[in-house]
Design a protein around this nucleic acid. Structure first.
Lengths: 134, 134
DNA sequence: TATACTTATGAACAGATGATCATATGTTAA
DNA sequence: TTAACATATGATCATCTGTTCATAAGTATA
């Protein structure tokens, strides 16, 4: 999930790697418009951030936590019991979810109460579900 | 991404692991409604499928491929050149995208032309972007 | 058929990931 | 302050993932 390393990525930017003015190796018809769309590709860093966001959703434990928090804020121990995971595992994953700004939290005495940070979570999960179930 | 192993997962179902009729260890107020929401949690296998779908979006190479195919079908070589990846890497990732039913393809002579399979891709990526950019 | 070209695939390897265990940090009450 | 409880975190480890390299498979043309 190393979002921090984005700037260190050595991946070549599409913009820099393309130079087929002298004719593309590929004979397919779509080639001609390549340069046109090229302008529309989001830049490298944004794509990394996007991938990182999806990575966060790409784990069952985290998905379960998000579902557990739908319409209901909960403390760590409750989440753990509800989804059948250890307190440690849940805490580790909550950290990831926090960093992705998908959950927020507030202290309540000894407990820390987590909740979904906004409606994006609902929408994202729903969109994913609809793809699976179609 | 081993979608195939879903059935082998040894994770306990939430339904089986919860049994706090005798009082929850946690003192937080949210606990009381736990059993209520429990009924609403999608079942284990569906959650695995959902996580797997998001995993597919959780890689920069695959995201780039999807963007490259937006509004424009392309052959493998073109995609590779456009996003600055090797033919092999692209082909491997296209396989993953195919399995997730995010892209479709058709042969055109020596070439294989790939395109997005439906509008879910647009919507998912847009939703992700909007979370990042908010 | 032989050759060139495009794509797909298997093996191997390095790096990333998630769970666990032990323990630290933070909070409340005695 | 001490004890008990709730959560966070660091280290370790097994597993998963994505790329690369070599090469197979499929297609068109000479």
């Amino acid at each position: 999930m190393n979002s921090q390393e984005h700037k260190d990525a050595t991946l070549t930017l599409p913009n820099e790697s393309i130079s087929h003015d002298d004719g593309c190796k590929c004979g397919c018809a779509s080639h001609v418009e390549a340069d046109g769309l090229l302008e529309c590709l989001p830049d490298e860093e944004l794509l990394y951030d996007l991938a990182d966001l999806f990575k966060v959703f790409g784990d069952t434990t985290r998905i379960k936590i998000l579902y557990a928090l739908m319409g209901q804020e909960r403390c760590v121990a409750d989440i753990a019991e509800l989804i059948g995971a250890t307190q440690s595992a849940v805490s580790h994953q909550l950290r990831t979810l926090k960093q992705a700004r998908l959950v927020k939290f507030q202290r309540d005495g000894k407990n820390v109460i987590y909740s979904l940070s906004d409606d994006h979570v609902h929408t994202m999960l729903a969109q994913g579900m609809s793809h699976i179930c179609e």
